[in-house]
Amino acid sequence: MTSDALTGGFAKAPQQSARAFRGLLEVMARPGTIHLLEGAAPPAPLSVAAGVALLTLADGTTPLHLTGAADCAAVRDWVTFHIGAPLVAAEDADFALGRWQDLQPLHRFRIGQPDYPDRSATLIVEVDRLEAAGARLTGPGIKDAAHLSLPEVAAFRANRALFPLGFDVLLTCGAQVAGLPRSTIVEDV
């Protein structure tokens, strides 16, 4: 285990995870909005937001899939020490973390069952840029329309077509986070 694995968690977990969850709730309930997640210092190449999201939502009961650059010794050790999530293949993951191209192909991720659509994966997608511009979003949580910089549109349209099944997505960039639940209708502009 690398010595860095022991640092970078929440200093005051109950309060910090509570604030982080409120940010996560807001972005999932209001697609297109961007919030800041702070309070943790995960090892490179994880963004602060991705690390905080994991600390807030994941634990020993939620299998995690790491991919691409995120699947490195420093991150694996940090996850093992602070979160305890079993590291698994894409097909078995409650949470998956990586860059968009490394998460492909997406059909490997759980989309829930017709009688239990909640049994689906949440993808934490690390992006280089996150802003309220780009693809047009409509649906629950959105008053008229919102816009969000997405890595692509087609995959989210395909995911929406599965509703109420589908995966849900958190987009992370530095301390920024945005949400894209399966319920959102995504269109090119």
């Binding site: 999932m28 309930a29 939502l57 939620t62 659509p117 689906s120 849900d168 399966r182």
Partner: peptide, 11 residues
Amino acid sequence: RRAILKGVAVP
């Protein structure tokens, strides 16, 4: 919290 987020995703 995980249950709440899944509930939000499937209104």
